[in-house]
């Protein structure tokens, strides 16, 4: 699973790179616009360790933001799973807020909180939170009647048991949603860093953009992609481990 994700990323990255190089040679563009393979490899050798550190910094923020989002999504999902007025309110609010581009709020966060760690974390969490919430509410609000019937009939049903049944029955779906939200958390952090932060790979991409250095941007994209593939693969493996541990 992990290797498959890495293969898939490498294939897509290499195809993209090949198309870019093809355009360069067909249209006869200079190395300044699209760097040659040699320049790219040279840049990779020069900055890969710096960028690896930057990507790691971004990933850490993304992971913390994602964990925060997952916890909050479960709390709100548990409250919103019922067909009460509160449940309906939470669902409607989640649908509506989710439709709003959260990135547009980023400048406000930077103005209020500055360009440090907290701003990056908050934007990352906000970007991955709402899609996560919608999925979690959807999963936890859907009764598994064939399992829950007995507990309801015998008066044993408690909210903890209800959440346990619904989570267990939808574990593959939850794992996919959480793995998918990792991309959003990473994207959120990079966007935050790109806008105004003072660290992370988004910040490095911004500097590379100011220098018009496409080779650095391509190296950054490679580092981001490979790191995210490993992280998502690890999340999927963790999901499988949780399921098998639960089933034993």
């Amino acid at each position: 699973m992990l290797l498959r994700r890495i293969y898939q990323f490498l294939m897509i990255y290499l195809i993209g790179l090949a198309i870019l190089l093809m355009i360069k040679y067909v249209v006869n563009l200079s190395d300044y616009v699209i760097p040659s393979l040699g320049i790219l490899l040279n840049t990779f050798g020069g900055i890969s360790s710096t960028y690896a550190h930057d990507v790691f910094s971004t990933l850490c923020v993304a992971i913390i933001g994602q964990i925060f989002s997952i916890m909050l999504a479960f709390v709100v999902g548990i409250l919103g799973r019922k067909t009460t007025w509160l449940g309906s309110l939470i669902k409607v609010a989640a649908y509506n807020i989710q439709a709003y581009p959260i990135v547009a709020l980023a400048p406000i966060i930077f103005i209020l909180l500055g360009d440090g760690f907290v701003s990056r974390l908050l934007i990352a969490a906000m970007i991955c939170y709402f899609p996560l919430l919608l999925s979690v509410v959807g999963i936890l609000a859907e009764p598994i009647t064939e399992v829950e019937h007995f507990y309801q009939q015998t008066g044993r049903m408690r909210w903890q048991l209800e959440v346990k049944i619904r989570s267990f029955e939808n574990l593959p779906k939850l794992t996919t949603v959480i793995a998918g939200s990792a991309t959003l958390a990473m994207a959120g952090t990079i966007v935050a860093e790109f806008i105004a932060a003072n660290a992370g790979i988004g910040y490095s991409i911004r500097i590379a953009l100011y220098q018009s250095d496409l080779s650095k941007i391509l190296v950054a994209l490679f580092m981001i992609g490979i790191t995210l593939s490993i992280y998502q693969g690890a999340l999927e493996i963790a999901g499988r481990l949780v399921k098998s541990a639960w089933e034993q």
């Binding site: 064939e146 399992v147 019937h149 007995f150 009939q153 015998t154 346990k164 049944i165 267990f168 029955e169 639960w246 089933e247």
Partner: peptide, 12 residues
């Protein structure tokens, strides 16, 4: 109590 044949026991 009402028992029917479409019920499942939890899998954990």
């Amino acid at each position: 109590l009402y028992a029917h044949n479409l019920e499942r026991l939890p899998g954990w």
